[in-house]
Amino acid sequence: MTRKQRRLTLIGLAGIVLASALGLVLYALSDGITFFTSPSDVLATPPSPEQRIRLGGLVEQGSIVKETGGIVRFAVTDGKATVPARYVGILPDLFREGQGVVAEGKVDANGLFEADTVLAKHDETYMPKEVVEALKKSGEWRPEDGAAPEAVTQ
């Protein structure tokens, strides 16, 4: 095999591998990603029931209801809008009313957010960045007191 043929074989192989990697990435980027949304976004343009979203905001004061079997109902608010949510499982230790939360899941036909993953902050001083920005956008960001904005009932 000449040097030229060898090189062509190698380039061909590399081309196949790279093309398939690129194809997989493009396919996965259209399907395997999750958009970050705030409660206002959800109410303005409700996502389709198949679409996974990442919802960020504050856990509304007085909204946590614990049912049997580890079912938890709560509401996520950004001060302008509130989305009811339901989660089955163990919540993070720092999941509290009035604190920042990011949850992943889908919004069902009735507008209930079925969360399959709930992330809370890792320590007292940390607020998820997305939540901070969502709150800033809705004009409810008050870092000095850290208190939750009053919930807006729709």
């Binding site: 990697a21 997989l24 990435v25 396919y27 996965a28 395997g32 999750t34 958009f35 970050f36 990442r54």
Partner: peptide, 18 residues
């Protein structure tokens, strides 16, 4: 300015087949 998160589904679809 759009925020997305790329999680396990993306990597299962790309890294796994590789």
């Amino acid at each position: 300015g759009e925020k997305i998160s790329v999680g396990a589904p993306f990597f299962d679809m790309t890294f796994g087949p590789m």
